[in-house]
């Protein structure tokens, strides 16, 4: 069952390796040149790798809550037909509760930056 996926992965790796090998032959030089980061020609004052201020961290927490919910959603999708209305009611009550949380987060400004 998974042999197809493994084969595709191998194909992809082959494609990447082929391109890199081809590049070694066709490029004006095989080795990379080391350069300064693009800053309009100015010297960088520090390394860019740093603690980055993500201003959407509130949104990412709400996202996590919902993302975990997807764990239930996929198996649920398979049994809706089997279980009928009760499954629908249960799931959408749950989703409704989550959406209320989203509305609350929205009103708190979690999805607005700046």
């Amino acid at each position: 069952m998974y042999s197809g996926i493994v084969a595709m992965a191998l194909m992809a790796v082959f494609a990447v390796v082929f391109l890199y090998a081809l590049h070694r032959l066709t490029a004006v030089a095989a080795s990379p040149v080391e350069v300064l980061p693009a800053q309009s020609g100015w010297m960088p004052q520090e390394h860019a790798l740093s603690r980055f201020h993500v201003r959407w961290y509130m949104a990412s927490i709400v996202f996590l809550a919902f993302d975990v919910e997807m764990l239930f959603m996929y198996p649920w999708a398979v049994i809706v037909i089997e279980r009928g209305l009760s499954a629908v009611v249960e799931m959408f009550l749950f989703l409704g509760a989550l959406l209320v949380a989203v509305v609350w987060a929205w009103r708190e400004g979690a999805f607005r930056w700046a």
Binding site: Q39, P44, Q45, E46, H47, S50, R51, F52, H53
Partner: peptide, 25 residues
């Protein structure tokens, strides 16, 4: 090249400051 240094943001969190000249190219 030095590492980025922290500074307080408007919420009082310690966040690194980066310097980026925009322009001329």
């Amino acid at each position: 090249i030095p590492l980025a240094q922290g500074g307080e943001d408007r919420d009082g969190l310690g966040v690194d400051v980066l310097h980026l000249p925009l322009g001329p190219v």
